[in-house]
Amino acid sequence: MVAISLRKARTIVRKALEKGRELELKPLSVVVLDAGGHVQAFEREDGASPGRFDIARGKAYGAVMLGMSGSAQLARAEQQAFFMAAMNGAFGGKVVPVPGGVLVRDGKGAVIGAVGVTGDTSDNDALAAMAGIEGAGLTGEA
């Protein structure tokens, strides 16, 4: 299995933040998790609230642990709220099931981690996450 290296994780963070500046988004926070849900890299822009780490991590954590993007989690929550509530309970309340949690896949389609972005609208967070992933030469699933 290919892992997200520290160099790639830092590139994802940098490119996601660059996209946020390009789009004039509110201050962003970006986390990159490996396939086991462990933090590989994190940055919080000046002006971002201190709670943004937990939100970004929750978006990415739900994506990697459930194998579905934040958008897919939101759709699932809307269709089966009990399922997502149960999953959030199973993961100790760490799942934030909204866009901005993006799966990262290798060239063969295997999940190698996830990115969580927070700070602006969830859809804009997802755009920034995808820009970071693509900027690192990887494939994202928003």
Rank of each mutant, 00 (worst) to 15 (best):
E22T: 13
E24C: 00
K26C: 06
S29C: 14
V30N: 12
V30Q: 08
V31G: 13
V32N: 11
V32K: 14
A35P: 07
A35G: 05
G36V: 02
G37R: 13
G37K: 10
V39D: 07
Q40H: 04
Q40R: 15
A41Y: 09
A41I: 03
F42Y: 15
E43A: 09
E43Q: 15
R44G: 08
E45C: 02
E45S: 09
E45I: 04
G47R: 15
A48Q: 11
P50Y: 12
R57K: 14
G58F: 04
G62S: 04
A63I: 00
A63R: 11
A63K: 10
L66R: 12
L66I: 00
L66Y: 02
M68Y: 04
S69P: 07
G70E: 11
G70R: 06
A72C: 00
A75E: 14
A75H: 11
R76M: 07
A77T: 15
E78A: 10
A81H: 06
F82D: 12
F82P: 07
M84W: 05
A85C: 06
A85N: 08
A85R: 07
M87H: 07
M87W: 06
N88C: 05
A90I: 04
F91K: 01
G92P: 01
G93P: 00
G93F: 01
K94D: 06
V96C: 00
V96P: 01
P97W: 01
G100N: 06
G101K: 03
G101M: 05
V102A: 14
V104W: 13
D106Y: 13
G107Q: 13
K108P: 00
G109Y: 08
A110V: 00
I112Q: 09
G113F: 05
A114W: 12
A114H: 08
G116M: 08
T118S: 15
T118A: 15
D120R: 12
S122D: 15
S122G: 09
D125A: 09
M130F: 07
A131Y: 06
